[in-house]
């Protein structure tokens, strides 16, 4: 997007305008996530058509080893996602 000239402030619906703005960030992120999911699906379909992967193999439940490996990844993912809720400083000052 190019920088458009300002047309003035957006309407406000929540008591705290921070929530109005944050909702915008959340929805933009959710949209990006959906666009990525859609692309991944497209990629998988193409790969399956070319015989590189099978959709059935992709969709099956993870093996135990895979599930274990995923645990660490998930712990890090969730930690990074939710730590801001604790509202703790990470530096002195």
């Amino acid at each position: 997007m190019t920088d458009a000239p300002s047309l003035g402030p957006e309407q406000q619906f929540f008591a705290d305008p921070a929530l109005d703005r944050m909702m915008g960030v959340v929805m933009a992120m959710a949209q990006e996530l959906y666009v990525t999911r859609d692309r991944l699906r497209g990629l998988e379909t193409l790969l399956a058509e070319k015989g590189v992967v099978s959709t059935a193999a992709l969709d099956r439940a993870p093996t135990e080893a895979e599930a274990r490996a995923r645990q660490d990844d998930l712990k890090e993912f969730v930690g990074a996602l939710l730590t801001p809720l604790l509202a703790q400083k990470t530096s002195h000052g």
Partner: peptide, 11 residues
């Protein structure tokens, strides 16, 4: 086009 279509479908 795919991203546009998915982005609009999401909305």
């Amino acid at each position: 086009e795919r991203a546009f279509s998915a982005g609009q479908a999401f909305l």
